[in-house]
Amino acid sequence: MTLDLLALIYLSAAANGLLVGAISLPLIISRSTLFALTITHAVLGGAILGIYVNEVLGVGLPVQLTAFLVALMLSILVAELSEKFFSEDVSIALAVALATTITVVFSYLLARISPAGLSQAWSYVAGTSAVATLSDLQRTLSSLAIIVPLIHMTSGEIKYISFDRDGAAALGLNTRAYRYLFFALGSLAASTLSMSMGVLATHVLLAIPGAIAVKLFRRKLFTASYLSAACLSLGGYALAQALNIPPSGGIGILSAIAILGMVVAREA
């Protein structure tokens, strides 16, 4: 590999790491790891739906857009269902069932009309960026430019609402607006990450840096989350290169080691 390409790959990995670090901590602090499950399932369904629509209608819809929109809609569905009808667990289970149905139905329909489309859809599961492109990096940097400032402006309120929802509402915080903003940012981060590292690795990686920060540090939690996410992402890419596997595989192996490390540290 040329030096330029290597630099691009590791720059993309670092940018992905920062994106994960920004969203992971609020996810963990607001006890929303199950919600991350909804987003990643929805991103996959949305991506496959986007590919199917492009194949059938012959249009060039950006697949990340359909992935983001489906993730956002299902996140809002979870919020509304858990606000008015069911517990959060039940609402998440319903949304995941819906996302999985979209995935299965449109994968089947896609397989009937375009095997190439199906393999493109599969790349969202395993990840595409064994070789990063400039557009991968641009996409991640654009998402970073939106997500990082908004997360830092609102993470205190998101945390507070998780701590005491009624108390936060009594203080005049618009709990619903903050929740929706957080869901939108989570959906954007997940759809961006899934484009490069794949849904599976995104799902695993979204929770770990935040968990490391909360379990092992008392202060500077965001710094800890950013650093551990960047290490996992960069290390995952390096490991993948060494083992000659997709980056999602390297990230998955390192993430599993990180989880084991946390368990051992807690037991000790």
Binding site: G156, K159, Y160, L171
Partner: peptide, 20 residues
Amino acid sequence: DIDYRVPMSVEEVVAMAALS
């Protein structure tokens, strides 16, 4: 009704009321 698992210092808990 409070979720103790959310890591909040006493200062953060009290200050949000002033900052809200």
